[in-house]
């Protein structure tokens, strides 16, 4: 297995719960203890009520594709074997949005509005990156 050379997070006290959660197969985000707002990106402060009090909460990992692009241009050499690769802006069921990738299907098979669910991609012993796959239509 070749070394993973793409950008990785620097694990800090602030983001550790997010990345440890991903290692355990859970998408976790911060929930404000005062107003209940679930926020992303990670921050020490609630952007709604400015409270510093929060807890990490497990999300369902479910959401839908809010917007969707495919990178053909190589901006970072580490992605040279990946282009063309997709990036989706995912609307999570609990409210926040995040960028990620839709895996397991051709780039052309994904549309805005498609239902997705989180999957967890261990790329190094320390880091597991949350990505998404298409959800089967409800039976």
């Amino acid at each position: 297995m070749s070394e993973y050379t793409k950008p990785l997070p620097t694990i800090t006290d602030e983001n550790r719960e997010f990345w440890e959660g991903a290692r355990r197969g859970k998408l976790r985000m911060q929930k404000c203890r005062d107003c209940g707002h679930i926020r992303y990106p990670i921050s020490h402060c609630c952007p709604k009520c400015l409270s510093y009090n929060f807890e990490w909460t497990d999300l369902s990992g479910r959401g839908e594709v809010f917007s969707y692009v495919v990178f053909h241009q190589l901006y970072n050499q580490a992605f040279k074997d990946d282009v063309p690769y997709n990036v989706a802006l995912v609307q999570l069921e609990e409210g926040p949005r995040m960028y990620s990738n839709v895996v397991g299907v051709d780039n052309d098979a994904v549309k805005v509005g498609d239902k997705v669910e989180a999957v967890f991609d261990p790329v190094t012993p320390e880091v597991t990156i949350p990505r998404f796959r298409l959800r089967q239509p409800a039976k």
Binding site: P7, F18, F79, V87, Y99, R131
Partner: peptide, 11 residues
């Protein structure tokens, strides 16, 4: 904080 480049989103 965590750069969106982790997922290849840049430029």
């Amino acid at each position: 904080g965590d750069s969106f480049a982790i997922w290849g989103f840049m430029a």
